[in-house]
Design a protein around this nucleic acid. Sequence first.
DNA 1: GAACGGGTACTCGGATAACTATTGTCCGAGTGACTGTGG
DNA 2: CCACAGTCACTCGGACAATAGTTATCCGAGTACCCGTTC
Lengths: 163, 163
Amino acid sequence: MRLGEGVEWGLHSCLALAWLDADAPISAARLAEIHDLPPAYLTKQMQALARAGIVNSSSGPRGGFRLARSPAQVTLLDVVDAIEGGRSTIFECTEIRRQGAGAEAPESCFAMPCSIARAMGEAEDQWRAALAATSLADIIGQVDSAAPGSDEATRVWLAARRR
Amino acid sequence: MRLGEGVEWGLHSCLALAWLDADAPISAARLAEIHDLPPAYLTKQMQALARAGIVNSSSGPRGGFRLARSPAQVTLLDVVDAIEGGRSTIFECTEIRRQGAGAEAPESCFAMPCSIARAMGEAEDQWRAALAATSLADIIGQVDSAAPGSDEATRVWLAARRR
DNA sequence: GAACGGGTACTCGGATAACTATTGTCCGAGTGACTGTGG
DNA sequence: CCACAGTCACTCGGACAATAGTTATCCGAGTACCCGTTC
C-alpha cells in the first residue's frame, strides 16, 4: 500500500529546485542526473507537479521547471496529492455494511456514516495535517543546519557536468 | 496508494465476530455471507489475521474463527498491520540523496537521516497513533448508540440462513 | 443400553491463475536561441 | 554596426509497452461429528 516511488522523486526534485534557487529553469534531464533517476519517468512526475500548479514549465532551449511559489508555500501534502492524483485516499469505504445482512435492514440504520470509515478517515486527517504542516522551506532549514554548504557543492557538481 | 480492499473486509469481519459474540466459532463462509463477499478470498484475509494472533482458527465441522482477545484489546492498527503484512509503511525512503551528485559527497553529509523521510515518517506515526487509539470496542459502542438492536437483527438473519 | 470404530462432511491452509495499477520508455509538437545575410 | 529571417537543437507533453502487486479461485490436509456395529 505504500506510496509510489514517484512521490519520493518529486519531493527531492522540488527540494532541489528550491535549494539551488537558480535564475534559469532546470530541465527534467538535469534534475534526473542529480539523483541518477530515469529521465523520462521523472518527466512524467514533473508534469503532474506542473498540472497541480506547484512548478512552472517552459519549453525550448534553456527551458525546464521552476517552482511556482516560494518554498515556504509548498507543503509535503501538496506534492503528495499532486503526484498521487485523486487517489491519495488511504482507505476507501465501499459500504459493504449495506450488503448481505445489511441489505434487509431499514434505511435508518445507515443514517450515520460507517464508523469504521469515520475512524480511518480521522486517522488519515492526522496524517494529512502533519504533511500540510511541513513545507519545503522547513526541510531546507534542516538540511542546511545538518550539512551546511552542500547546496553550493551541488551547484558546482552540476556546473561541472554542464555541456 | 490506497489500502487493499481486504483491510475493509477484515475490519468488518472482526467487528462482526466481536459484535455477534457467539459461543461457537464462525466460519469464513458465514462471515462472507454477512457482507456478501467472495468466500475464498475472505478466507485468505482471515488467515492473515490468524497468523497475527488476532483471531483463533479451528478446523472441522463447527469450526471457524473467533477473536483471540477482548474487543477492547484489538485496535484498528492491529488489523491493518496484520492484513497488509510488513508492507504497511506508507512512505519508504530509498536514499536517492546518495545517488548522482550525492555519490561524491563526504559520508558526513549523511550522518543525519534524510529529512524528507523523517517528516514523512512523523506524519505516518500520527496516522498509526490514531489507528492504535481506536479499538473494536469503541466502534461497537458507536454503532450501538447509532442503531441499537441491529446486532440482534444480524443474529436472527444469520440463524434464518442456517442450514 | 453403552462403548467403540469407520465413514463422512465440513473446516482451514497453502499453492495456483486473472486482472489492475504502477513503472518505464518512446516519439511527436512546440519554442526559444543561434547563425548567416542584408541593409 | 544593427535588424531580420531561416534553421536548428532542445524542451515538454502525451501515447504506448513491461513489470509487479493485488484480487480471485481452486484443491488438498486435517478434524470433529454422526451412524452403525458389537459387547
